[in-house]
Write a protein that binds this DNA or RNA. Structure first.
Lengths: 233, 233
DNA sequence: CAAACTTTGTGATATAATGCTCATATTATA
DNA sequence: TATAATATGAGCATTATATCACAAAGTTTG
């Protein structure tokens, strides 16, 4: 009787690979819309300013999707990536801080539904906005109702759009609410735990990183044009 | 006569370092507000779930700011990071797609000004919103006015909050407008050039990366709790 | 003021991500 | 069916990034 598997051979894919898969997916959707049937790693890479080998390696983490001498079937590859990222299943999302500008903007953003994310609950701490109706989503609930709603509705992802100062107050109720993932826009670095994966998106940090590049150029490091830190994402 | 410098010894700091500097800066501001005078790399690292050596190395790219046996002066370190990131100088920002939800939310977000970014012009392509007044910022201008306004006002950074489909139309006018940096929220990967640094922030990609983690756990890779891809940023 | 303790800054080392190269598979063509 | 052309997948090389470990510097204590 053997111990377990014969040896998984492949290491876990890096997070950067996962991000790129999402970008590939979007591009593939566009190609499919244009009627393109097949794409090579070379062409994919060129459009996205990546190395073709990187594209192939990213995909090879998950199987052999391509055909030598031909390339990748746009539709098949798209379907594979959808499965890899777990996007066949609709994911329920709630927004915390839905009374604020950013929260409202995201609550009303229709782009998520196209990708199978459904905003289906809104929360806030401020009594002044609790009860307000948001078109097509529902009324804003008190944050106190979060744990119950998460369980009843099956919410998996929380989007946090609250001020930094408010985090401490809601931190525990959020982490213990039963959600498995958080997308945090508050300018305060939340840490992942065993139970809850957190991704922080810090708009100020993004601007400051750009400011750094600006001041590099100002300070006359002229031929920085090479090794320029390039774009992220 | 020597060729140039005696040899810069230090390599360029990675982008990840720059991002972390921004995070350090925010935390240092908080500490300063709380009256904390000195912080060690160890304490800083603990709060931000980093390695102390990484904190020290990040800072060491730019000089020797600490005191052995003591730590870093909160105020001094804060001031150094401000200089490194070029934040002593106010940076003028314009928003393209200011008629949309996200654009409006960002235009009205007051958090940027605290960090010395000033939103001072708004643009859109849609005649239905051009001319609309946005409190405290001004009227929405036609995108046609972008190049002139950039030059006259000294705008350095553009924030793009337009639909993906609209990018192709405005791509050239933006890249040639004279700005040096772009923060792109549109779900379309824009590429950096020699003249214009682009950072892409893709909200859908963030959600999809979280979805991947969710489906990993669903598929029963139980003891993933170790090597969990953790948080980004 | 010496000994014990703390904490930085950095060279050495480990880990990870990216890029290169080529054997192999597929298609097209003559 | 052989030949040329294309493009994947995988192993290896290279580069980039993160961590370790320790000497040097500063502080505190007795």
């Amino acid at each position: 009787m053997k111990k377990t598997e014969p040896a998984p051979k492949k290491p876990l894919p890096p997070q950067a690979t996962i991000r790129r898969l999402s970008v590939y997916l979007r591009y593939l959707n566009g190609l499919d819309g244009d009627g393109v049937k097949v794409i090579s790693s070379h062409d994919l890479a060129r459009r996205l300013a990546l190395n073709p080998a990187q594209v192939r390696k990213d995909l090879a983490y998950f199987g052999e999707f391509g055909k030598r001498g031909v390339g990748y079937s746009v539709k098949k590859l798209r379907d594979h990536i959808v499965k890899i990222l777990g996007l066949q299943k609709m994911r329920k999302v709630a927004i915390i801080g839905a009374g604020g500008r950013l929260g409202t903007a995201l609550a009303l953003y229709t782009g998520f539904e196209k990708r199978n994310f459904k905003v289906c609950a809104l929360f806030d701490k401020d009594p002044a906005v609790i009860g307000n109706e948001v078109d097509g989503v529902g009324r804003i609930l008190s944050i106190e109702e979060l744990p119950r709603t998460v369980k009843e509705t099956g919410i998996e992802i929380l989007v946090l759009t609250i001020p930094a100062a408010a985090i401490k107050e809601v931190h525990d109720i959020i982490m213990l609410s039963g959600v498995r993932a958080i997308l945090n826009f508050a300018p305060y670095k939340m840490l992942s735990t065993e139970d809850v994966a957190v991704h922080n998106v810090d708009l100020t940090t993004e601007l400051e990183a750009l400011s750094y590049l600006l001041s590099l150029r100002e300070s006359g490091l002229t031929s920085l044009e090479n090794n320029l830190p390039a774009d992220n994402e």
